[in-house]
Write a protein that binds this DNA or RNA. Structure first.
Lengths: 226, 226
DNA sequence: TAACCCGGGATTGTTGACAATAATCGAGTT
DNA sequence: AACTCGATTATTGTCAACAATCCCGGGTTA
C-alpha cells in the first residue's frame, strides 16, 4: 500500500473506476452512444455520482459529452494515437531524466527486479501479449512516479496511459518486439542506476520512438486497424 | 467566435468556468477550506451542478477534495512550480516544433501581428504586468493550438496554463524581462515562419528555461514568496 | 496539565422526483 | 418521392429533501 490514508471510497469514485476500466478494457466501445440510465443499471449506481464521474472522465479526455445528447467514448484515430506517442516521447524522456536524479537505490533495485520477472513472463507466456503489455505498463509507471514530479506523474498516469492502454488492450501493441523492448528497458535502468539523467532521457525517447515507428509500420502494412 | 457550434451552456459548465477563473484570479485562496453551500450562494448555483464542476476541477488538479471534509484549492510549493516549468519546457518545445510544421501561413501572420500589438502594449503599459502576462498567455496559446496535436493542446491549455496563470496573477511572474521575452517570442515566430521545427523547439525550450531561471532567482533573492 | 473519549452540530454524499431540451418520427407540402 | 415542419417522446439537466460521515467542543481520566 503506497498510501496508508484510508480514504473512504465514495460512490463517485467507484463509478469513476468502473467506467475507466470499462473503457480501457473495451467493454464500452468507442463511438457508441450510451445513455445515463443504462450506465446506472449496468454499474448499479444512481445518476448523481454517475454524472460526477462522467464529468471527471470528460475532462480527462476519455469520453465526450454533448448536452442533451448523451455521452460517447472517444474514438482515437491512427493519427491521434501517433500524436499521443509523440507526447509520450518528450514527457517520458523528462521523467526518465528526473528519475535518474531522484529515485532511491531501493527503487532502482526493485525496478531492476521487475525486469527480471518480465523476462521470465515473456519466456513463459510466449506471445501472451496481455502480460507483456502489463509488464511494459508497470515499467513506465515506476519511472513516472520515480521522477518525483507530481504533476508529470499525474499527467502521464492519469491522462496518457489510460488512452494508450485502451488501445493496447485491443491491439496488443507491443507484440512483435518483446525481447527488443526488454533490452531497451534494461539499458534505461542501467543509465538510471548510473545516475546518468541525460542518457536515460535519450534512451527513453528512443525507446518510445521505436515503439511508435513499429505501430506506424504495422498500420501501413494493414496489420493493424484502428 | 472560434467555434460556431452553439453548444448550450449548462449550469455545470457555468460553475466550472466561475470556479476556474475564481481560482486563477486568486479570489479563492489556496489552502483555504471552503464549503459547498458557501460556493453555491456565492455563484448562485445549486449543489448538483456544483459537485460536477468540483469533480472536473479536481481531476484537473486545481483543487483537492477529501470525502466528508470539504474542498480546498491546491497550494503549489515553489519546487512544484519549478517542476511545472520543466514540464512546459519539453511540452511546449514539442508544440513549437509541430506548429512550425503545421500552422497555416495565415496563422503565422496573425501570430506575428499579435506580437506587434504586444510590443505596443508593453510600451504603453510600462510595467502593467497584467497585460504582459495576458499577452504572453496569448502567444503560447496560439502555438499550442497551432501544433494541431489535440491532446497536447488539451494538456497545455486545460491543465498546465491554468496552474501557471494562477501564480502569474499573484506574482506577475514575467515582469522584469518584458522586452527580452518579446525578442525571444519574435525569434520563435521567425523559426516557425521558416518552417524550421528543430530550431523552433530549441528556442522555445530555451525561452521557458530562461523564464524558470528568472523566477528561481527571484525566489532565492526573496523577492517572490510562494 | 495533557491526553483521550464522546455526543451535538454542521457538512457532505446520495437519492428520487421534476423541468427543460434535443432527437425522432409522422404528416403535410412541394 | 423528397423535403420541411411540427408534435411527441425519451433523455438529459436541475433541484430540494434525506441519510451518512466527520469535525469540534466539553467533560473525564491518567
Amino acid at each position: 500500500m503506497p498510501e496508508a490514508i484510508a480514504q473512504t471510497y465514495t460512490r463517485a469514485d467507484e463509478a469513476f473506476d468502473c467506467l475507466q476500466t470499462a473503457i480501457v478494457k473495451g467493454d464500452l466501445v468507442p463511438g457508441e452512444k450510451i445513455g445515463e440510465v443504462e450506465l446506472c443499471s449496468r454499474f448499479n449506481l444512481t445518476r448523481g455520482p454517475l454524472r460526477e464521474a462522467l464529468g471527471r472522465l470528460e475532462s480527462r479526455g476519455l469520453l465526450v459529452r454533448r448536452p442533451h445528447a448523451g455521452v460517447k467514448v472517444v474514438s482515437v484515430s491512427a493519427d491521434e494515437l501517433m500524436e499521443l506517442y509523440r507526447i509520450r516521447e518528450t514527457m517520458e524522456g523528462l521523467a526518465a531524466r528526473q528519475a535518474a536524479e531522484r529515485m532511491t537505490d531501493q527503487e532502482i533495485a526493485d525496478l531492476s527486479a521487475t525486469l527480471d520477472s518480465h523476462e521470465r513472463m515473456i519466456e513463459q507466456a510466449q506471445g501472451q501479449a496481455y502480460y507483456q503489455a502489463e509488464g511494459d505498463y508497470d515499467f513506465h509507471h515506476r519511472i513516472a512516479t520515480g521522477s518525483r514530479n507530481t504533476k508529470l506523474a499525474q499527467m502521464l498516469l492519469g491522462d496518457l496511459y489510460y488512452m494508450v492502454r485502451m488501445y493496447r488492450y485491443r491491439l496488443s501493441t507491443s507484440s512483435g518486439r518483446p525481447h527488443m523492448a526488454l533490452g531497451e528497458h534494461r539499458r534505461i535502468v542501467e543509465a538510471i542506476a548510473q545516475r546518468d539523467g541525460e542518457l536515460a532521457e535519450f534512451l527513453m525517447k528512443r525507446h518510445i520512438h521505436a515503439a511508435r515507428k513499429n505501430i506506424e509500420k504495422k498500420i501501413q502494412q494493414g496489420e493493424l486497424t484502428i
